[in-house]
Design a protein around this nucleic acid. Structure first.
Lengths: 348, 348
DNA sequence: CTGAAAGCGCTTACAG
DNA sequence: CTGAAAGCGCTTACAG
């Protein structure tokens, strides 16, 4: 570890006395803007500001409980998206020297009683709940002492903090992007009943609703799972029942894995991407880059969720519960244009 | 100002040596849970933790520019809601010794060029934009050096931070509350084209969509403005065209001022609240409490928006722009039950 | 508005 | 895991 930056390092870098640095950093004397700026720049450069901030948060949150169900707890990078989130969250805890205690319930739900017991036992200052759409859970824990945050989930009753990607807005933005390319007949390929998929679908519908374009009939295509092989089977089925040329010029998929399955089906049916139809994924998964052509997609900042979640837990510790409303945070996503999106075919 | 708390104060309160306090506060030695807890409690009690946190943020944000248009800048508490927000924001800047520079454009829009010039001139570290639905503005400023946050607004392109009440979720929650009271035929009284109203309407529509209940025809009632006198005139008109008993058992209003106007109209038409119909407002403004009966409403934490906005601006200064996604923060609202909501009349 | 110098408060190496 | 003590780093009262 590099030696911890001191005020003296800043004063040398900025060419002023250490006392001047101290004044600027604490607002204890009014120093000229020019010198102030120079000192602040040096303070940032040496890492002094970051160090001070880090220190201020230590001890606010010595222990955090990580609650998940077996089903939602990714054991490998097969479940790439939650894997990325979980690892970034763990790393962030390490950076802040927070002790992280996992509390994993078997099955596919977190059992409220188990979580309450674990809180009783470990007395954590914060609890992070992994993407669980289980609302009795919130009833059971929102009033307890530790601060609560849900990672990649929602709380419609707005009683606990949540952090998730802005799925709905991002899907709307994605659809708008396809509109801007000239597409008018876009299909949305979606699966399952998980909230994430619901929100992405809502964004798609909203984009049509707020545009001047009419959504074509049959534009929502449901597939069974997000596993590419299954999606390919489903889509080949769907394709065989469609007229040619296809009544859609673009497929906006609720996940990259779905998009990869769709691309395989299109290839098998002899339909060219992006010449005949465009395909747009969602998640920005590694394997998307290796498709041929490489998959256009929506980048979702899963690696930032942990950082934001811990900031929320820390902030919550600095304010009394009844003076602080729950925060629902959505993180901005962005379109990543690669090879599978283009303007619609002339005849399409 | 009280004397600044020192480590010694904590050590006395917690009955340990100052060095032990230092270890716990910096994580430099592992101290028993019991002693740790005692020290942390004392550290919080003396205000030491809060002091350290406050100090860590000084100098991150010496100057903030407050951008608004004349029309959006409340000059008195006639515009109670934004007035509350603005004052709390100013107070929060004072607490953090941030110099706040107002930049008010005439008319009802912030002019992007003016804001860019003001940024050039004052070189603020942060810019707070007051509730402006003007998206060219974001194009013009999102890439500049200072961090940007929009107060009580949205950014569908998800490029800058925003803080606003969770209008949509809150309206959905409000409607669910009326469902739970037994109401099935609820009207939503709304006005204008401002985004806030749109979101509240969306929440109302969504509550019906996600419920088992059918939304009755004519359930969206548009009034001209939110001024109670005008609303009363509009509603008397509307009431005169309705059969008795009314086809609705509850009025969910997009603002308290609207609800106050609705109540006056109902009184004039001899319809009793809450016996004949329930009325629910939105905003929790002071004058609602003085109605007869006192108005049930949705509390909107406007006074917290400034705090959250400054936290976002500060946090943005600690991370490089390209490593940090924009945050869209919505604050939780809650139902405040007073005298104007009850179960529907038996015959209703 | 800046800097030299005194001294306060915090950290840390060490003994138990 | 805790505490007494040395000394480092930061703050502040003051001169210019």
């Amino acid at each position: 570890m590099a030696k911890s930056p001191r005020i003296q390092d800043i004063s040398e870098l900025a060419n002023v006395a250490p006392s001047t640095v101290s004044h600027v950093l604490n607002g204890t004397a009014s120093i000229s803007d020019e010198v102030s700026e120079r000192i602040l720049a040096a303070a940032r450069e040496t890492g002094y500001l970051a160090k001070r901030r880090r220190k201020a948060a230590v001890a606010l949150l010595p222990t955090v409980l990580l609650a998940a169900s077996e089903a939602n707890f990714p054991k490998s990078d097969r479940n790439y998206v939650s894997w990325t989130m979980l690892n970034a969250f763990r790393q962030e805890c390490r950076n802040r020297s927070i002790r992280l205690i996992p509390q994993i319930d078997p099955g596919d739900k977190i059992i409220p009683e188990n979580l309450v017991n674990a809180i009783e036992r470990h007395k954590p200052q914060g609890v992070a709940i992994m993407q669980d759409d289980n609302y009795e859970l919130i009833d059971a824990v929102h009033d307890l002492d530790p601060s609560i945050v849900i990672l990649s989930g929602q709380d419609p009753s707005m009683r606990v903090d949540t952090v998730s990607p802005g799925n709905r807005f991002a899907a709307q933005m994605a659809t708008d992007y396809l509109f801007r390319l000239g597409h008018r007949r876009i299909a949305h390929v979606t699966y399952g009943t998980r909230l994430i998929g619901q929100h992405r679908k809502m964004g798609f519908l909203e984009a049509y609703r707020e545009s001047a374009h009419r959504m074509p009939p049959g534009a929502i295509i449901d597939v069974e799972t997000f596993r590419p092989e299954v999606v390919t089977r489903n889509m080949l089925n769907w394709l065989s029942a469609q007229p040619r040329p296809l009544p859609f010029t673009a497929f906006f998929c609720a996940a990259d894995n779905v998009a990869i399955g769709v691309m395989a089906a299109l290839a098998e049916a002899g339909i060219k991407v992006p010449e005949d139809v465009s395909v747009l994924g969602f998640d920005n998964v590694e394997s998307g880059k290796r498709q041929n052509p490489p998959l256009s997609t929506i980048h979702v900042p899963m690696e930032e969720i942990g950082h934001v979640a811990l900031n929320l837990l820390e902030e919550a510790r600095t304010l009394p519960k009844n003076e602080r409303s729950a925060r629902r945070v959505e993180l901005g996503c962005r379109v990543v244009v690669r090879g599978t999106t283009a303007g619609p075919a002339r005849s399409g």
